[in-house]
Simulated assay, not measured.
Amino acid sequence: MPDLSKMKKPDVKVVLLGDMNVGKTSLLHRYMERKFKDTVSTVGGAFFLKQWGPYNISIWDTAGREQFHGLGSMYCRGAAAVILTYDVTNWQSLAEIEERFLSLTDTANHDCIYALVGNKADLTDPKVHLSQDADGQTKDPTGGDEERTEPQVLSAVPTPPASPTSFSGLVLHKQVTRDDALSLYERILRYKGLDEKSSLPADKMCFETSAKTGYNVDVLFETLFDLVLPSILRKRHENRESPTVDLEDSGGVGSKRARSSCC
């Protein structure tokens, strides 16, 4: 958690939503700290402040557990972008987005941008073991010096537990296809009352990522930051047009005289 005494005021808010164990916290750590960390379930919510050029973006991580569900709408209030996250090896995690989490975004900005993100892609695709930078270049996180064997493919396995490390070297069955994600994104647009023709296309806003290898993580966040830039500029313009009045500065000698002369 940032030091509040030194924290700059954020220009815009981005929120991650999704069921527990889909990897929301790991995605955020991968992007902000450039490394993968095995994390415990988030309690309530947490956030990072990202300096992006001259702008400050707060990125909020929310708890997926049922007992913290009511907090989600509070964290989404005023959000300029929401990252709806699921696990590509767990069909139910995709269904939960529509059943539990989509309604929480009703408190977001009316022009909020939605990204649909399938995490843990490294468990279903051997190619995702190559991480990807923001510029789209791929690299081998192991350095590429050691000989690698092809992972064993399982035709079908149950939904994996929270930690993928026990399945190291295995490729799991992919339960959520890209077509499934594209269809859900279109339903999200209809739920929000957005015109599909004038909205961002589904194929540009549906991502598959791996917090473990870094695959597509930079691409996800940098794409959203580019898209929320108009919201940042509009907010700054509105603040210049309607500056905040400092009551302490305006409560000087003149105001005391006004109060003393009042009948």
Rank of each mutant, 00 (worst) to 15 (best):
Met1Ala: 13
Ser5Trp: 13
Ser5Tyr: 15
Lys6Ile: 03
Lys9Cys: 14
Val14Ile: 06
Val15Thr: 09
Leu17Ser: 02
Asp19Trp: 03
Met20Cys: 15
Met20Pro: 09
Asn21Tyr: 08
Asn21Trp: 00
Gly23Lys: 06
Lys24Pro: 07
His29Val: 13
His29Phe: 13
Arg30Pro: 09
Arg30Asn: 08
Tyr31Ala: 00
Tyr31Phe: 11
Met32Glu: 03
Phe36Asp: 04
Lys37Cys: 12
Phe47Leu: 00
Phe48Ile: 05
Leu49Pro: 06
Gln51Gly: 08
Trp52Thr: 00
Asp61Leu: 04
Thr62Ile: 07
Ala63Met: 04
Gly64Ser: 02
Glu66Asn: 06
Phe68Asp: 05
Gly70Ala: 13
Leu71Gln: 06
Ser73Pro: 08
Tyr75His: 04
Cys76Arg: 00
Cys76Trp: 05
Gly78Ser: 01
Ala81Met: 05
Ala81Arg: 00
Val82Phe: 02
Val82Cys: 10
Ile83Gln: 01
Ile83Asp: 00
Leu84Trp: 01
Thr85Gln: 06
Thr85Ile: 06
Tyr86Arg: 00
Thr89Cys: 11
Asn90Met: 06
Ser93Arg: 09
Leu94Met: 10
Leu94Val: 09
Glu96Cys: 13
Ile97Glu: 05
Ile97Tyr: 03
Glu98Cys: 14
Glu98Phe: 14
Arg100Lys: 12
Phe101Trp: 07
Ser103Cys: 12
Asp106Leu: 13
Ala108Arg: 02
His110Ala: 12
His110Leu: 15
Asp111Asn: 10
Tyr114Asp: 01
Ala115Gly: 01
Gly118Tyr: 05
Lys120Leu: 04
Lys120Ala: 04
Val128Tyr: 03
Asp133Glu: 04
Asp133Thr: 12
Asp135Cys: 06
Thr138Cys: 11
Asp145Trp: 11
Glu150Phe: 12
Val153Lys: 11
Val157Tyr: 11
Pro158Glu: 12
Thr159His: 10
Pro161Lys: 12
Pro161Asp: 15
Ala162Phe: 10
Ser163Gln: 14
Pro164Arg: 05
Ser166Met: 14
Phe167His: 11
Leu170Val: 06
Val176Lys: 00
Thr177Met: 06
Thr177Gln: 04
Arg178Cys: 12
Asp179Tyr: 07
Ala181Trp: 02
Leu182Gly: 02
Arg187Val: 13
Arg187Leu: 08
Tyr191Arg: 11
Gly193Leu: 07
Leu194Ala: 13
Ser198Ala: 14
Asp203Ser: 07
Asp203Gly: 05
Met205Trp: 10
Thr209Ser: 02
Thr213Asp: 06
Gly214Asp: 01
Val217Lys: 08
Asp218Trp: 00
Val219Tyr: 01
Phe221Arg: 00
Glu222Ile: 00
Thr223Cys: 04
Leu224Trp: 08
Leu224Thr: 05
Val228Thr: 05
Val228Trp: 00
Val228Pro: 02
Leu229Thr: 02
Pro230Gln: 09
Leu233Ser: 11
Glu238Gly: 08
Glu238Thr: 08
Pro243Cys: 01
Thr244Asn: 09
Thr244Ala: 10
Asp246Tyr: 08
Gly251Trp: 09
Gly252Phe: 03
Val253Ile: 14
Ala258Glu: 15
Ala258Arg: 15
Ser261Tyr: 15
